[in-house]
């Protein structure tokens, strides 16, 4: 390798101010002796100046357009929260209703709603009323309310209600147990927010994820976090050998999972 070839990467880095003091000294000494390399540096300067100057003014109404998208997004989010709250309220109403039924049916039963006796009574009752209540907001969350999003913004478009219906039934069942035992569990679920964490490394956003309804956070370090239905997370996790899956003792009821795509 000749001297100048050795300096090529250094010239580019020197132009970008990405060289050490020692490299600067070495390169500047070389520039003194080498017209070719000085000329290369000058070429880089010219190219850069032309590139930087080649800009356009932003189209009129740009920032207003951004704020329209922000408003549409916020509207969509608040609509979803409303649906979710209604869902939670509906579920508690369902539970209250089933307790009322039990009260009427078994007025003198000890440890109402919890303990061994509930196995026989609560389970069958829950599957009839509260379970349906738990399922309906979930379907609603997956399937509806996407009209507010602008066409080009984050994709909340399609639904996944078919696949999720089954999960609602199987996953929600053990959860109803906890509700009977411990009402503080609801707070824990809200706080934890997810029942499953899938970490993927250096992969593009999987198509299944793009096709599902999700909430997303873009972190400064480049990581992107999605909150998605558990069923979607399971499908995605199954595709990647290096997927790290952590199951949390929370929120299966809410059917949320966190998918983190790391750089």
């Amino acid at each position: 390798m000749s001297n100048c070839e050795k300096y090529l990467d250094l010239i580019s880095a020197y132009f970008d101010g990405e060289v050490t003091d020692a490299e600067t000294a070495e390169l500047e000494a070389h520039f003194e002796a080498c017209e070719e390399c000085r000329s290369i540096l000058e070429t880089y300067r010219e190219m850069s100046a032309e590139l930087i100057e080649d800009t356009e003014d932003v189209p009129e109404g740009f920032s207003a357009g951004v704020m329209d998208k922000v408003a549409a997004y916020e509207k969509n989010i608040s609509a979803r929260k409303q649906r979710k709250n209604l869902g939670i309220a509906g579920r508690w109403i369902g539970i209250a209703a089933c307790i009322a039924i039990v009260l009427v049916a078994f007025p003198r039963m000890p440890n109402l709603g919890c303990g061994a006796s509930k196995d026989a009574v609560m389970e069958s009752t829950m599957s009839g009323s509260a379970m349906n209540d738990a399922a309906s907001p979930q379907e609603d969350m997956f399937a509806g309310g996407t009209g507010a999003m602008p066409e080009s913004s984050v994709d909340f478009s399609s639904s996944d209600s078919d696949g999720n219906a089954g999960d609602v039934t199987t996953d929600a069942a053990p959860e109803s147990d906890e509700e009977c035992h411990d009402t503080s569990a609801e707070n824990k679920f809200d706080r934890a927010g997810v029942g499953m964490v899938v970490t993927l490394y250096g992969v593009e956003v999987p198509e299944e994820l793009e096709a599902s309804e999700y909430e997303v956070t873009y972190y400064e370090n480049g990581d992107v976090e999605y909150i998605v239905p558990v069923s979607v997370a399971r499908d995605i996790a199954a595709q990647y050998d290096n997927a790290e899956v952590e199951v949390l003792d929370a929120d299966i009821e809410e059917m949320n999972a966190r998918i983190i795509i790391k750089k």
Binding site: P59, V66, S152, S153, Y218, E220, G222
Partner: peptide
């Protein structure tokens, strides 16, 4: 236009997570 506006929307969505470890412009560019 679409992509630039979407990038700003993403910034809005995640601004609560922005801690200032990098410059705001750097985050936006990314």
């Amino acid at each position: 236009l679409d992509a630039a506006q979407d990038a700003f929307l993403k910034a809005w969505i995640s601004i609560a997570s922005f801690r200032g470890d990098s410059k705001f412009s750097a985050w936006l560019y990314r």
